[in-house]
Design a protein around this nucleic acid. Structure first.
Length: 152
DNA sequence: GCCAACGTTGGC
DNA sequence: GCCAACGTTGGC
């Protein structure tokens, strides 16, 4: 089982939205590096930190698990969707997604605190200019962030 | 294949 | 809302 961090803008889709939906597709990832991980590496049962970006309280806010691995993101073929990609070929889809299930909220671990923690210095998240929206998390980083919530 | 122009991300 | 940093596009 592997660990990941998924970014989302809470104004669009928050940890609370996920809690209400219980299970949701993680659609709309339109970045090749992130796509490759969603398509090839994120597996059933993997654990995910949900991270809120572009908002007042930026940071890790909860945990989800993968309930369905890698399948084509159908929104890429929907002209009405903001995630529509006219260049994607239905016979060879460009974008993939997974389904995730809400597990629990965490007390906010802010980006500021994560940046200040040397144990997390290798995370793409804390590096200047990083825009990766799906990233791997090592077991040590996962445990460190859990410890930082103070919830045990 | 280079790289300038452009659009987007995301913290602040 | 600003803007630096980044990824993508497309002309050549």
């Amino acid at each position: 089982m592997a660990y990941w961090l998924f970014k989302t803008e809470p104004d669009t889709f928050s940890i609370d939205t996920l809690k209400q939906m219980k299970v949701s597709p993680w659609e709309g990832v339109r970045n090749y590096q992130a796509r490759n991980m969603l398509r090839d590496e994120v597996k059933l049962g993997d654990q995910i930190f949900i991270y809120h970006s572009s908002c007042k309280d930026v940071g890790v806010v909860g945990i989800a698990t993968v309930t369905k691995a890698s399948y084509p993101d159908h929104f890429q073929f929907d002209p009405e969707s903001p995630y529509f990609d006219p260049k994607s070929d239905p016979n060879n889809p460009r974008w993939f997604m997974v389904d995730i299930e809400y597990q629990r909220h965490l007390r906010l671990v802010s980006l500021k605190r994560m940046k200040a923690n040397p144990a997390l210095a290798d995370m793409p998240l804390v590096k200047k200019g990083s825009r990766l929206s799906v990233m791997p998390v090592t077991e040590a980083q996962w445990q460190e962030i859990l410890t930082m919530t103070g919830q045990f």
